[in-house]
């Protein structure tokens, strides 16, 4: 799909990148990203993706805006207190980024509501971003991403710790899923409510989550449509990003990386084997 003159001007700094170009920008404009949770991570990740020219974003969150959210959920102001997070974020993003179609679900993602959210017959979901704030929701998002064969980009932050990973069972089955790394029966202590967090700590992970998402959207396209030599010349292949866990320590300013591994006993991804 050809870009308009205005789009070419607006996204010129991205198009200038050989890894993007007009073809990549067009690909972004045809992509559909689902963002689960519109808190600190979801606010910024959604804004970055909408600003980058992603064509369609679905936001889902049943939570309401509270005053304690304002230091890190930067789309919201005190005028928005009490409003639904997905609704308010969608309204603001639609005003700011008119190229982006934004749909909001003003309820939490549940096993019952998942079919409506995931089975969009007109606009298939290309990526799911887990921006939720609790372990149970993260397990559900992982399970649904596997069931619907969608790449999951999961980010999290609390205290001075942040984690980021992406998985896809079709492209990189050996690296397993979120449940292989964190079985659902493990005990969890770190949430923003219990240990606190600084706004830029969440923002750092949201930025990395958005960056990883853009890379994956662009390289999905590259691996599918370009000849092997062209793919090799690109700086990033989706298989290099998928299946890696990145951990950021925001007090020491260190990143650590580890390759994920499939748990042969995993009760989630094992049952969805191809």
């Amino acid at each position: 799909m050809a870009l308009t003159d205005q789009a070419f001007m607006q996204y010129s700094r991205q198009i200038l990148l050989p890894e993007v170009g007009e073809h990549g920008q067009s690909r972004l404009s045809q992509s559909h990203v689902l963002i689960v949770g519109v808190g600190g991570l979801g606010n910024l990740a959604a804004q970055y993706l909408a600003a980058a020219g992603v064509g369609r974003i679905s936001l889902i969150d049943g939570d309401r805006i509270e005053r304690s959210n304002l230091p890190r959920q930067l789309l919201f102001t005190s005028d928005d207190l009490g409003g639904n997070k997905a609704d308010v974020a969608a309204q603001k993003l639609m005003r700011a980024y008119r190229d982006c179609h934004i749909h909001c679900y003003q309820h939490y993602l549940t096993a019952d509501s998942a079919a409506t959210v995931f089975n969009n017959r007109y606009h298939a979901i290309d990526l799911v971003l887990d921006c939720s704030d609790n372990f149970a929701a993260r397990q559900l998002v992982n399970q649904l991403a596997i069931e619907h064969k969608v790449t999951l980009v999961s980010a999290s932050a609390a205290h001075f710790q942040g984690q980021l990973l992406s998985v896809n069972q079709q492209i990189s089955p050996d690296t397993g899923c979120y449940h292989c790394l964190y079985p659902s029966d493990m005990s969890v202590s770190q949430t923003c409510q219990t240990v606190g967090v600084l706004g830029p700590m969440v923002g750092s992970l949201a930025s990395m989550q958005a960056l990883m998402s853009l890379n994956l959207l662009l390289t999905h396209d590259a691996t599918a449509e370009l000849p092997p030599i062209a793919v090799q010349s690109r700086c990033m292949d989706s298989r290099q990003l998928l299946g890696q866990l990145y951990r950021f320590d925001g007090a020491k300013f260190t990143w650590r990386q580890a390759t994920l591994a499939r748990d042969p006993d995993c009760t989630v991804c094992r049952v969805h084997e191809r």
Binding site: G40, L41, S132, F135, R138, A158, V188, Q190, T191
Partner: peptide
């Protein structure tokens, strides 16, 4: 060995 906890906040 790196031993770490799950981080679930967002």
């Amino acid at each position: 060995l790196d031993v770490f906890s799950v981080v679930a906040g967002g």
